[in-house]
Computed example of a mutant assay.
Amino acid sequence: MLPDLLSVAVPAATTTAAPTRLDPVQLFLDADIVVQAVMAGLILASIWVWAIIVSFSMKMGSIDRRNRAFEERFWQADDIEPLVRSDADLPSRRIASAGIGEWKASTRGGVKDRDGLRQRLSSTLDAAVTNESDTLAEKLNFLATVGSVAPFVGLFGTVWGIMNSFFQIGAQENTSLAVVAPGISEALFATAIGLFAAIPAVIAYNRFSHRVNAFETKLYRFSDRFNASLSRELEAM
Rank of each mutant, 00 (worst) to 15 (best):
V153A: 10
H210K: 13
L27F: 02
L44N: 03
T175F: 07
S165Q: 01
A51K: 01
K104L: 15
F74S: 07
I100N: 10
W160K: 12
P151Q: 08
G110D: 04
T14R: 15
F215Y: 14
A198V: 01
F56R: 12
V54N: 02
G147E: 06
L22F: 11
A9M: 13
A77L: 08
G194N: 04
T217N: 12
W50T: 04
K139L: 10
S92V: 01
V149Y: 10
D64A: 12
L143P: 05
P3M: 11
L117F: 01
T217S: 14
R94C: 01
V25M: 11
S57D: 10
I203G: 07
R225I: 02
N206W: 03
L27V: 03
N206V: 05
G99C: 02
A204S: 14
Y220F: 12
G110Y: 06
D87Y: 06
M1E: 13
A18E: 10
V84P: 05
Q168I: 04
T130L: 14
K112Q: 14
E186Q: 15
V49M: 01
A69R: 08
F70M: 00
V179H: 08
N227Q: 12
W50C: 06
D30E: 15
P11L: 08
M39I: 15
V8P: 00
R21H: 15
G109C: 05
V35F: 00
T175M: 11
K104T: 14
F226L: 15
T158V: 07
F226D: 09
R221A: 13
A51N: 06
K59G: 03
K139D: 13
W50I: 10
D126V: 09
A144N: 05
L90W: 00
P24Q: 02
L83Y: 07
